[in-house]
């Protein structure tokens, strides 16, 4: 079942990537990146069990934290530049 879960995660990562490419709004892209990030966390955790290397979990842990920070970062700078160009983007 681990392998099946890993494949499902890979498929969803590909789907999130397609959404990130299609857009259409910037928010869709941010959503897709966030989705991609959490799926990577899960994939690394599952891969750790699949290959019998549970020390992969430290990396998954890093991701769970870093992913949040980068999503906040994108929002912060997007709102900032939007405030400057008076909502020309989006």
């Amino acid at each position: 079942m681990l392998a099946g879960t890993a494949i499902a995660l890979l498929v969803v990562m590909a789907m999130a990537l397609i959404r990130a490419l299609l857009g259409p709004t910037i928010y869709d892209r941010i959503l897709a990146v966030n989705l991609f990030g959490t799926k990577t966390v899960l994939l690394i955790a599952v891969a750790g069990f699949l290959f019998g290397r549970p020390d992969f979990l430290d990396i998954a842990l890093t991701y769970a934290l870093i992913n949040f920070i980068s999503v906040i970062g994108v929002l912060r700078f997007f709102e900032y530049s939007n405030a400057q160009t008076d909502g020309k983007g989006a």
Partner: peptide, 19 residues
């Protein structure tokens, strides 16, 4: 902006690859 976000995804994928 989209390019930066894609580069974030690039980082995630390459790290998974290293794993």
């Amino acid at each position: 902006f989209a390019a930066v976000m894609l580069s974030g995804i690039y980082g995630l994928v390459s790290a998974s690859f290293f794993v």
